[in-house]
Simulated scan of single mutants.
Amino acid sequence: MNSPANITPSFPHHGPLSCRRCFTNIEGDERDIGAWHVVNDPGAWGASNPKVLVLGFSKGFTQANAFKSGKFEDVPFKKARGRLRSILCRLGLLD
Rank of each mutant, 00 (worst) to 15 (best):
C19R: 08
R20Y: 09
R20F: 06
R20A: 07
R20T: 11
R20D: 09
R21H: 12
R21T: 07
C22G: 00
C22A: 01
F23V: 06
T24K: 11
T24D: 05
N25C: 11
N25P: 01
I26V: 15
E27R: 01
D29M: 05
E30I: 01
E30F: 04
E30Y: 03
D32R: 11
D32W: 04
D32V: 00
I33A: 00
I33G: 05
G34N: 12
G34A: 08
A35K: 03
A35L: 06
W36M: 03
W36F: 06
H37M: 00
H37F: 01
H37N: 02
H37P: 00
H37A: 07
V38H: 15
V38T: 12
N40E: 11
N40T: 06
N40P: 08
D41F: 06
P42S: 05
P42I: 07
P42M: 14
G43F: 15
G43I: 15
A44W: 09
A44Q: 12
A44L: 10
W45R: 01
W45P: 03
W45V: 14
W45T: 08
G46R: 05
A47Q: 10
S48N: 09
S48F: 10
N49D: 11
N49T: 12
P50E: 03
P50R: 00
P50H: 04
P50K: 00
P50M: 04
K51I: 15
V52T: 13
L53E: 09
L53Q: 14
V54C: 14
V54R: 13
L55P: 07
L55W: 15
L55R: 10
F57L: 13
F57C: 04
F57M: 13
F57I: 12
F57P: 07
S58K: 08
K59D: 04
G60N: 05
F61P: 01
F61A: 07
F61I: 13
T62K: 15
T62P: 03
A64M: 03
A64H: 01
A64W: 03
A64V: 02
N65A: 11
A66N: 02
A66I: 09
F67G: 03
F67W: 06
F67I: 06
S69D: 08
G70I: 10
G70N: 04
K71Y: 14
K71G: 08
K71V: 11
F72S: 05
E73I: 12
